[in-house]
């Protein structure tokens, strides 16, 4: 019994002795099986197919068939032809992210810390737009921003817009659409982090000579970093690949890489180029995510 006395005190009764060890060891893998099979069939295989397609002979066509010629040149060709759309994707998504952060952080903070009994209602309000289709909502913005709409009329009246200035079919409209459509993906993870923030820590910070701004920088921000990282990625990745906003709220001058990929596959039927562009986008996003996560990770340690 002396040995028992040294056991760490635990509120749970000791686990029953493991029976049928073999089954227990296999269990995690069995649980993984459906997901792994799904990923293999619907992600890995199409990805391989896409990788192969990006190396097809660009001279082929859908009717004549494609030959596998390891045409690595598809990649530089795609970059050369579409680098404006490519960089525009990252530029628009980046600007939209900054705007979304400026709006979304205070919003998430207010809901998590200051809303009191309105908290759940406000959360529903953040999510509610997603009850209708992405497409319908973007079309609604098209109406709101249209040249004959009340908003443009008002802005023209107060001379914020010239007499024939417009909102629709401008880069601003596309960025606005991106910001609007992906804002909930930023706000929700941020909210989850800020909700757990103990307000007593902020009191302790102010007791230890931190002004409200310093308390934010030293306590609130670092403690919300996990939500901030997740939210930023959940916002930025789909926003970069998006083509609906540029399609509906912009003109070909605002087209992003998503529009080009869309037309390569569905309009021009240039499969090798579409596949090469898709792969380039994926690689660029992966690189950004990797760098970002490493940086965010070390900041958290600091």
């Amino acid at each position: 019994m002396t040995a028992l006395a040294h056991l760490p005190t635990s509120t749970r009764p000791p686990a029953p002795p493991p029976v049928r060890r073999g089954r227990h060891r296999l269990l995690p893998y069995l649980l993984l099986l459906p997901g792994a099979a799904w990923l293999l069939v619907f992600f890995a295989l199409p990805l391989l197919q896409l990788a192969a397609a990006s190396l097809y002979d660009p001279a082929g066509s859908l009717s004549t068939g494609y030959a596998m010629t390891w045409a690595v040149g598809n990649y530089p060709d795609a970059v050369q032809a579409y680098w404006p759309q490519f960089s525009r994707s990252f530029l628009y998504a980046g600007i939209a992210l900054v705007i979304a952060l400026l709006m979304g952080y205070p919003l998430a903070y207010a809901i998590a810390q200051k809303a009191g009994r309105w908290k759940h209602l406000l959360l529903v309000a953040v999510v509610a737009p997603m009850f209708t289709s992405f497409l319908v909502r973007t079309l609604a913005w098209k109406t709101i921003l249209s040249d004959s709409g009340a908003l443009v009329g008002l802005l023209r009246d107060v001379h914020l817009l010239g007499p024939d200035g417009r909102l629709l079919a401008t880069p601003a409209a596309v960025v606005l659409g991106l910001t609007y459509n992906f804002l909930p993906f930023l706000v929700l993870p941020l909210y989850a982090s800020l909700e757990r923030l103990d307000p007593r820590l902020l009191e302790a910070a102010s007791d230890l000579y931190a002004s409200p701004l310093r308390a934010f920088a030293r306590v609130t921000l670092p403690l919300s970093l996990p939500g901030l990282t997740a939210g930023t990625l959940l916002f930025f990745i789909p926003a970069t690949g998006d083509y609906i906003n540029a399609e509906l709220l912009g003109t070909p001058n605002e087209y992003m890489v998503g529009n080009v990929i869309d037309s390569a596959f569905l309009v021009r039927l240039d499969y090798p180029q579409g596949a090469a562009l898709s792969f380039l986008l994926m690689a660029a996003i992966l690189a950004i995510v990797f760098v970002y996560l490493r940086k965010a990770g070390t900041e958290e340690v600091l």
């Binding site: 009191e203 000579y209 308390a215 403690l223 958290e300």
Partner: peptide
């Protein structure tokens, strides 16, 4: 005076140490 301007410090009932 705001708390951060006071020459007063507190040991809180809940400690309130910064977890990060």
């Amino acid at each position: 005076l705001r708390p951060h301007k006071r020459p007063v410090n507190t040991v809180f009932q809940s400690y309130a140490l910064f977890p990060h």
